[in-house]
Protein backbone atom coordinates (compact mmCIF):
# COMPACT_ATOMS: atom_id res chain seq x y z
CA UNK A 1 0.00 0.00 0.00
CA UNK A 2 1.24 3.42 -0.94
CA UNK A 3 -0.05 6.64 -2.38
CA UNK A 4 -0.70 5.08 -5.73
CA UNK A 5 -2.65 2.04 -4.62
CA UNK A 6 -4.35 3.08 -1.41
CA UNK A 7 -7.83 4.30 -0.62
CA UNK A 8 -10.67 4.70 -3.07
CA UNK A 9 -12.39 1.46 -2.08
CA UNK A 10 -15.87 2.89 -1.89
CA UNK A 11 -15.47 5.03 -4.98
CA UNK A 12 -14.04 2.20 -7.00
CA UNK A 13 -16.91 -0.03 -5.89
CA UNK A 14 -19.45 2.61 -6.91
CA UNK A 15 -17.79 2.88 -10.28
CA UNK A 16 -17.89 -0.90 -10.74
CA UNK A 17 -21.57 -1.03 -9.81
CA UNK A 18 -22.37 1.80 -12.23
CA UNK A 19 -20.52 0.01 -15.01
CA UNK A 20 -22.41 -3.18 -14.26
CA UNK A 21 -25.75 -1.38 -14.32
CA UNK A 22 -24.95 0.34 -17.62
CA UNK A 23 -24.03 -2.97 -19.26
CA UNK A 24 -27.16 -4.50 -17.81
CA UNK A 25 -29.40 -1.84 -19.32
CA UNK A 26 -27.88 -2.47 -22.73
CA UNK A 27 -28.77 -6.11 -22.29
CA UNK A 28 -32.27 -5.27 -21.09
CA UNK A 29 -32.84 -3.26 -24.24
CA UNK A 30 -31.88 -6.13 -26.50
CA UNK A 31 -34.00 -8.75 -24.75
CA UNK A 32 -37.44 -7.46 -25.83
CA UNK A 33 -36.31 -7.05 -29.42
CA UNK A 34 -34.94 -10.56 -29.56
CA UNK A 35 -37.98 -11.91 -27.76
CA UNK A 36 -40.37 -10.16 -30.13
CA UNK A 37 -38.50 -11.43 -33.17
CA UNK A 38 -38.40 -15.00 -31.87
CA UNK A 39 -42.03 -15.07 -30.77
CA UNK A 40 -43.33 -13.47 -33.96
CA UNK A 41 -41.30 -15.80 -36.16
CA UNK A 42 -42.10 -18.99 -34.30
CA UNK A 43 -45.83 -18.31 -33.99
CA UNK A 44 -46.21 -16.57 -37.34
CA UNK A 45 -44.58 -19.17 -39.51
CA UNK A 46 -47.40 -21.70 -38.91
CA UNK A 47 -49.93 -19.99 -41.16
CA UNK A 48 -47.46 -18.77 -43.75
CA UNK A 49 -47.85 -20.47 -47.10
CA UNK A 50 -48.48 -19.51 -50.71
CA UNK A 51 -52.20 -19.20 -50.10
CA UNK A 52 -51.59 -16.69 -47.35
CA UNK A 53 -49.92 -14.28 -49.75
CA UNK A 54 -52.22 -14.79 -52.71
CA UNK A 55 -55.73 -14.94 -51.27
CA UNK A 56 -58.04 -12.69 -49.32
CA UNK A 57 -60.33 -13.42 -46.38
CA UNK A 58 -63.44 -13.31 -48.53
CA UNK A 59 -65.93 -15.99 -47.49
CA UNK A 60 -63.61 -17.39 -44.86
CA UNK A 61 -65.22 -17.58 -41.45
CA UNK A 62 -63.04 -16.84 -38.43
CA UNK A 63 -63.25 -20.46 -37.37
CA UNK A 64 -61.81 -21.78 -40.60
CA UNK A 65 -58.19 -22.02 -41.50
CA UNK A 66 -56.87 -20.63 -44.75
CA UNK A 67 -57.41 -17.31 -46.40
CA UNK A 68 -54.76 -14.68 -46.69
CA UNK A 69 -53.41 -11.23 -46.59
CA UNK A 70 -53.42 -10.24 -50.25
CA UNK A 71 -56.19 -7.64 -49.91
CA UNK A 72 -54.49 -6.12 -46.87
CA UNK A 73 -51.14 -6.07 -48.59
CA UNK A 74 -52.60 -4.18 -51.55
CA UNK A 75 -54.34 -1.80 -49.18
CA UNK A 76 -51.15 -1.02 -47.29
CA UNK A 77 -49.27 -0.60 -50.55
CA UNK A 78 -51.82 1.86 -51.93
CA UNK A 79 -52.36 3.80 -48.72
CA UNK A 80 -48.69 4.17 -47.94
CA UNK A 81 -48.02 4.93 -51.59
CA UNK A 82 -50.56 7.74 -51.69
CA UNK A 83 -49.32 9.10 -48.37
CA UNK A 84 -45.78 9.14 -49.72
CA UNK A 85 -46.84 10.83 -52.93
CA UNK A 86 -48.35 13.67 -50.93
CA UNK A 87 -45.97 13.91 -48.02
CA UNK A 88 -42.74 13.88 -50.01
CA UNK A 89 -43.29 16.89 -52.28
CA UNK A 90 -44.96 18.92 -49.54
CA UNK A 91 -42.29 17.95 -47.05
CA UNK A 92 -39.47 18.82 -49.42
CA UNK A 93 -41.09 22.17 -50.20
CA UNK A 94 -41.31 22.92 -46.49
CA UNK A 95 -37.67 21.96 -46.09
CA UNK A 96 -36.74 24.19 -49.02
CA UNK A 97 -38.59 27.03 -47.40
CA UNK A 98 -36.73 26.47 -44.13
CA UNK A 99 -33.28 26.03 -45.60
CA UNK A 100 -33.19 28.03 -48.83
CA UNK A 101 -35.57 30.89 -48.13
CA UNK A 102 -36.64 31.19 -44.56
CA UNK A 103 -33.44 31.12 -42.58
CA UNK A 104 -33.68 33.29 -39.49
CA UNK A 105 -37.19 34.58 -40.30
CA UNK A 106 -39.95 34.48 -37.70
CA UNK A 107 -42.19 32.40 -39.94
CA UNK A 108 -39.43 29.85 -40.53
CA UNK A 109 -38.78 29.60 -36.80
CA UNK A 110 -42.48 28.98 -36.17
CA UNK A 111 -42.71 26.40 -38.95
CA UNK A 112 -39.61 24.64 -37.71
CA UNK A 113 -40.97 24.54 -34.18
CA UNK A 114 -44.33 23.14 -35.23
CA UNK A 115 -42.73 20.53 -37.44
CA UNK A 116 -41.00 19.31 -34.29
CA UNK A 117 -44.23 19.45 -32.36
CA UNK A 118 -46.04 17.52 -35.11
CA UNK A 119 -43.52 14.72 -34.72
CA UNK A 120 -45.09 14.13 -31.34
CA UNK A 121 -48.73 14.13 -32.41
CA UNK A 122 -50.16 10.71 -31.46
CA UNK A 123 -51.18 8.67 -34.47
CA UNK A 124 -54.72 8.33 -33.22
CA UNK A 125 -55.03 12.12 -33.16
CA UNK A 126 -53.99 12.20 -36.81
CA UNK A 127 -56.83 9.78 -37.48
CA UNK A 128 -59.27 11.90 -35.50
CA UNK A 129 -58.25 14.98 -37.43
CA UNK A 130 -58.84 13.39 -40.83
CA UNK A 131 -62.16 12.09 -39.55
CA UNK A 132 -63.34 15.46 -38.28
CA UNK A 133 -61.98 17.47 -41.20
CA UNK A 134 -62.03 15.33 -44.31
CA UNK A 135 -64.93 13.03 -43.52
CA UNK A 136 -67.20 14.98 -41.19
CA UNK A 137 -66.68 18.53 -42.44
CA UNK A 138 -65.94 18.01 -46.12
CA UNK A 139 -68.34 15.11 -46.35
CA UNK A 140 -66.16 12.45 -47.93
CA UNK A 141 -66.69 8.80 -47.11
CA UNK A 142 -64.28 6.68 -45.16
CA UNK A 143 -61.84 5.17 -47.63
CA UNK A 144 -58.29 4.06 -48.17
CA UNK A 145 -57.59 7.60 -49.27
CA UNK A 146 -58.76 9.04 -45.96
CA UNK A 147 -56.45 6.56 -44.26
CA UNK A 148 -53.63 7.69 -46.54
CA UNK A 149 -54.24 11.29 -45.54
CA UNK A 150 -53.89 10.43 -41.87
CA UNK A 151 -50.63 8.62 -42.66
CA UNK A 152 -49.52 11.71 -44.58
CA UNK A 153 -49.81 13.77 -41.43
CA UNK A 154 -47.58 11.30 -39.63
CA UNK A 155 -45.02 11.19 -42.45
CA UNK A 156 -44.82 14.89 -43.11
CA UNK A 157 -42.71 16.02 -40.14
CA UNK A 158 -40.29 13.14 -40.62
CA UNK A 159 -39.82 14.00 -44.28
CA UNK A 160 -39.37 17.69 -43.52
CA UNK A 161 -36.73 16.99 -40.88
CA UNK A 162 -34.63 14.66 -43.00
CA UNK A 163 -34.95 16.79 -46.11
CA UNK A 164 -33.94 19.81 -44.07
CA UNK A 165 -30.88 18.05 -42.68
CA UNK A 166 -29.86 16.89 -46.14
CA UNK A 167 -30.35 20.29 -47.78
CA UNK A 168 -28.21 21.85 -45.07
CA UNK A 169 -25.41 19.45 -45.94
CA UNK A 170 -25.28 20.65 -49.55
CA UNK A 171 -22.20 22.89 -49.69
CA UNK A 172 -22.80 26.59 -50.19
CA UNK A 173 -20.12 26.70 -52.94
CA UNK A 174 -22.30 24.53 -55.11
CA UNK A 175 -25.17 27.00 -54.96
CA UNK A 176 -22.89 29.96 -55.47
CA UNK A 177 -21.18 28.37 -58.45
CA UNK A 178 -24.60 27.99 -60.02
CA UNK A 179 -25.71 31.55 -59.22
CA UNK A 180 -22.45 32.80 -60.70
CA UNK A 181 -23.46 31.21 -64.00
CA UNK A 182 -26.63 33.27 -63.92
CA UNK A 183 -28.89 30.34 -63.07
CA UNK A 184 -31.97 31.50 -61.15
CA UNK A 185 -32.29 30.36 -57.57
CA UNK A 186 -35.26 28.08 -58.11
CA UNK A 187 -33.59 26.30 -61.00
CA UNK A 188 -30.49 25.94 -58.89
CA UNK A 189 -32.54 24.35 -56.15
CA UNK A 190 -34.27 21.94 -58.50
CA UNK A 191 -31.32 21.09 -60.68
CA UNK A 192 -28.40 21.24 -58.25
CA UNK A 193 -29.45 21.25 -54.60
CA UNK A 194 -32.19 18.62 -54.61
CA UNK A 195 -30.28 16.09 -56.73
CA UNK A 196 -27.27 16.45 -54.44
CA UNK A 197 -29.41 15.85 -51.38
CA UNK A 198 -31.60 13.22 -53.01
CA UNK A 199 -30.01 10.02 -51.74
CA UNK A 200 -30.23 11.29 -48.17
CA UNK A 201 -33.81 12.37 -48.64
CA UNK A 202 -34.73 8.97 -50.06
CA UNK A 203 -33.37 7.12 -47.05
CA UNK A 204 -35.27 9.51 -44.79
CA UNK A 205 -38.46 8.87 -46.73
CA UNK A 206 -37.90 5.13 -46.41
CA UNK A 207 -37.62 5.46 -42.65
CA UNK A 208 -40.86 7.43 -42.62
CA UNK A 209 -42.52 4.76 -44.77
CA UNK A 210 -41.35 2.06 -42.38
CA UNK A 211 -42.92 3.99 -39.57
CA UNK A 212 -46.35 4.55 -41.08
CA UNK A 213 -46.66 1.16 -42.76
CA UNK A 214 -47.19 -0.34 -39.31
CA UNK A 215 -49.74 2.20 -38.10
CA UNK A 216 -53.07 0.78 -37.02
CA UNK A 217 -54.90 3.39 -35.00
CA UNK A 218 -55.49 6.08 -37.63
CA UNK A 219 -56.72 3.47 -40.11
CA UNK A 220 -59.33 2.23 -37.65
CA UNK A 221 -60.89 5.69 -37.60
CA UNK A 222 -60.69 6.53 -41.28
CA UNK A 223 -61.48 3.32 -43.19
CA UNK A 224 -63.85 0.47 -42.75
CA UNK A 225 -62.32 -2.97 -42.54
CA UNK A 226 -63.09 -5.46 -45.27
CA UNK A 227 -62.27 -9.09 -45.93
CA UNK A 228 -62.16 -8.57 -49.69
CA UNK A 229 -59.84 -7.04 -52.17
CA UNK A 230 -60.52 -3.43 -53.03
CA UNK A 231 -58.17 -1.94 -55.56
CA UNK A 232 -59.78 1.48 -55.46
CA UNK A 233 -58.10 3.53 -52.79
CA UNK A 234 -60.64 6.33 -53.25
CA UNK A 235 -63.84 4.54 -52.42
CA UNK A 236 -65.20 1.72 -50.36
CA UNK A 237 -63.69 -0.09 -47.42
CA UNK A 238 -60.10 -1.15 -47.76
CA UNK A 239 -57.98 -3.41 -45.57
CA UNK A 240 -54.36 -2.96 -44.56
CA UNK A 241 -51.90 -5.32 -42.92
CA UNK A 242 -52.03 -3.74 -39.44
CA UNK A 243 -55.83 -3.61 -39.42
CA UNK A 244 -55.88 -7.17 -40.73
CA UNK A 245 -53.88 -8.25 -37.68
CA UNK A 246 -56.15 -6.21 -35.41
CA UNK A 247 -59.21 -7.80 -36.95
CA UNK A 248 -57.87 -11.31 -36.59
CA UNK A 249 -56.97 -10.73 -32.95
CA UNK A 250 -60.51 -9.45 -32.37
CA UNK A 251 -61.87 -12.70 -33.82
CA UNK A 252 -59.85 -14.54 -31.26
CA UNK A 253 -60.31 -18.07 -32.63
CA UNK A 254 -57.30 -20.31 -33.06
CA UNK A 255 -57.14 -20.05 -36.86
CA UNK A 256 -57.61 -16.29 -36.56
CA UNK A 257 -54.79 -15.97 -34.04
CA UNK A 258 -52.55 -17.97 -36.37
CA UNK A 259 -53.40 -15.52 -39.13
CA UNK A 260 -52.79 -12.60 -36.78
CA UNK A 261 -49.30 -13.91 -36.02
CA UNK A 262 -48.63 -14.58 -39.68
CA UNK A 263 -49.76 -11.05 -40.50
CA UNK A 264 -47.53 -9.70 -37.75
CA UNK A 265 -44.62 -11.65 -39.23
CA UNK A 266 -45.23 -10.22 -42.68
CA UNK A 267 -45.53 -6.73 -41.21
CA UNK A 268 -42.37 -6.95 -39.14
CA UNK A 269 -40.36 -8.34 -42.04
CA UNK A 270 -41.69 -5.62 -44.33
CA UNK A 271 -40.87 -2.86 -41.87
CA UNK A 272 -37.49 -4.30 -40.92
CA UNK A 273 -36.43 -4.72 -44.55
CA UNK A 274 -37.34 -1.15 -45.46
CA UNK A 275 -35.70 0.06 -42.28
CA UNK A 276 -32.46 -1.86 -42.70
CA UNK A 277 -32.12 -0.99 -46.39
CA UNK A 278 -32.63 2.67 -45.49
CA UNK A 279 -30.01 2.49 -42.76
CA UNK A 280 -27.52 0.77 -45.04
CA UNK A 281 -28.12 3.35 -47.76
CA UNK A 282 -27.79 6.12 -45.21
CA UNK A 283 -24.45 4.74 -44.06
CA UNK A 284 -23.34 4.39 -47.69
CA UNK A 285 -24.31 7.91 -48.70
CA UNK A 286 -23.44 9.63 -45.45
CA UNK A 287 -21.15 12.59 -46.12
CA UNK A 288 -17.71 11.45 -45.12
CA UNK A 289 -16.86 13.50 -42.09
CA UNK A 290 -13.72 13.16 -39.96
Amino acid sequence: MNDLTSGLKRRRATDKVATGVVYLTALIAIIPLVSILIVVFSRGIAAINAEFFTSTMRNISPRREGGGIFHAFIGTLEQVGVATLIAVPVGIMVAIFLVEYGSRGKLAAAVSFFVDVMTGVPSIVAGLFIYTCFILTFGFDRSGFAAALSLTILMLPVVVRTAEEMLKLVPMDLREASYALGVPKWVTIIKIVIPTALSGIITGVMLAVARVAGETAPLLLTTFMTQSLNLDVFSGPQAAIPTFVWDQIANGTNPSMDRAWAGALVLIVLVAVIYIVAKVLAARFAPKSK
Binding site: I36, G214, A264, I268, Y275
Partner: peptide, 13 residues
Protein backbone atom coordinates in the same frame (compact mmCIF):
# COMPACT_ATOMS: atom_id res chain seq x y z
CA UNK B 1 -34.83 -1.17 -34.76
CA UNK B 2 -36.95 -1.69 -31.66
CA UNK B 3 -38.39 1.76 -32.34
CA UNK B 4 -39.45 0.61 -35.80
CA UNK B 5 -41.53 -2.30 -34.49
CA UNK B 6 -45.21 -1.43 -35.09
CA UNK B 7 -47.49 -0.92 -32.08
CA UNK B 8 -49.78 -3.72 -33.10
CA UNK B 9 -46.88 -6.14 -32.77
CA UNK B 10 -45.98 -4.83 -29.33
CA UNK B 11 -49.62 -5.32 -28.41
CA UNK B 12 -49.83 -8.84 -29.76
CA UNK B 13 -46.54 -9.84 -28.16
Amino acid sequence: LLAAVPSIIFGLW
